[in-house]
Design a protein around this nucleic acid. Sequence first.
RNA 1: CGGGGCAUGGCGCAGUCUGGUAGCGCAUCUGCUUUGGGAGCAGAGGGUCGGCGGUUCGAAUCCGUCUGCCCCGACCA
Length: 568
Amino acid sequence: MRLSRLPLNTFKEIPAEAEVVSHQLMLRAGLLRRLASGLFTWMPLGLRVLRKVEQVVREEMDRAGAFELLMPAVQPAELWQESGRWEIYGDLLLRMQDRHQRDFCFGPTHEEVITDIARRELKSYKQLPVNYYQIQTKFRDEIRPRFGVMRAREFVMKDAYSFHLDQASLEDTYAAMADAYARIFTRLGLRFRAVDADSGEIGGARSQEFHVLAESGEDAIAYCDADHFAANVELAPAMPPTEPRPDASAPLKAVDTPGVHSIEDVARFLKVKAQQCLKTLVVLGRDDQLLALVLRGDHELNTLKAEQLPEVQKPLTLASPEQVMAAVGCAPGSIGPKDLAIAVIVDHSAAAAADMVCGANTADQHFTGFNWGRDAAEPRVADLRDIVAGDPSPAGGGPVNIARGIEVGHIFQLGDKYSRSLQAAVLDQNGKEVAMTMGCYGIGVSRIVAAAIEQNNDDDGIIWPEPMCPFHVIIVSLNPKKSESVTEATDRLYEDLQAVGLEVLVDDRDARPGVKFADADLLGIPHRVTIGERGLKSDQVEYRERRSGKETTLALDAVTAFFRDRQG
RNA sequence: CGGGGCAUGGCGCAGUCUGGUAGCGCAUCUGCUUUGGGAGCAGAGGGUCGGCGGUUCGAAUCCGUCUGCCCCGACCA
């Protein structure tokens, strides 16, 4: 492709609307343009990247034995009513009517449609298992689209759905998909991690997320390299301390703490560490009874874990200050477990600590030297907190680390949720009708592009992993208008490199060298060959690798061989 | 949906408080010079100042209202 023909607009300045680096760079490099909130046009160079990702995904899905099909983006309401999700899905579902006032939606996902296909096409256990997939545009009317294509409303997703006679068969395909996903992200040249995950709204037994590791990631992942443990922090169990609780050594003492409420304030005021404090959170329980959850001051409440408790109302809701005042007689900032009028559940770590600081259930007072068993009954304990770096791995391999990641894939064992509601059944060996068991497997194709940039960029721009670069090589032609020899050498190299299978972008624009170098860096093309009159005098050109910035001089005649050897 | 912010040529912004004939940088076009890391000079084009209403002799500026967008929280590929 010749840049002199491609209307490419790059920006020096960062567009005000872009918060994260991938969004900024995609706009600056002219890969992406915004149409409306959460809606984007993939410009020619951006689309090339998207297509490459699609192709890797497609090849690995095919290799794993899945069959590609393409379902409609627009879906009739009847199917969604049948599954019960027409009501449940809420405003995330973009609804519309046709000219006959019949209800439709723009598909945010395709369980209903694929299950409809399955119940029509699959009649016998002999046809199972089968795994269908598509690469297609979804629409989810997100409350707050952001980060460009990372969380767009319209986005490209690979979604696969497998159908099975039994759980064992599902587990085989699930494992094959986990394997295929690992191959996909490896092939794309991304640093990633597969983690145990919450199955969320979709429901079902097992689920794993695939995260591209990046500082800017929205999710926190706990992992331990020694034992291969990896889980979303949402889900990672925090192990109870193995050390027994130290004996009480300090007397219980009430101290005045005027205007001191948050753990941070309390710790500073009393000159103790946050981990010497108890944090008491009051939440709504079942039957609207209030319930106190107690954590160590340096720990965070884990919503999912709290919601697992039978006493806790789901979704987890913090009690209002008024409710707290009415139930225990003081404001939320002064609550502690001693003589508390409501039920108390304590995190393992908080229960294993002695001589703690906690609220005194009286305005502007805290206790120091609080001890379980002495100052309050031995509490009911549970795992209530987020795992933190340094906690022991649940798999026993040593301390965990915390990394940040961008979720780009998610695989689920669905079970029979949809096959039951939509009555997708086959006849088994005994001629008996059984609901099929399902799995579903998603990859955010367009999100991968943004995630790759988040993981691979520097001050000068994007650094594409080679498997997803829009072009392998950019030839920067210096002052082609002025120099016949430069133009000739450029054209010849352009042909030669393409002939050995490379995708080549030629910067033959009538622009100054600095502009071309800056754009080449911004675009993130992995390899750059600079042809200028100066070097040509001795038949030499310059090669520069984008990622390392390393430059070498090559003989013009040797460039093609250089790349051919590199390709191996 | 709750909280905060913004809306002025394609992009980034000033001007708004204190009403008085819309400006800067980048980009674009022309010419000359320049040409190995985002050139210089000279000139040019391009804006109903988000929409609607109001106040005023006069509104980008004040008031009201609507819309769009961005950021922070609960969901997700």
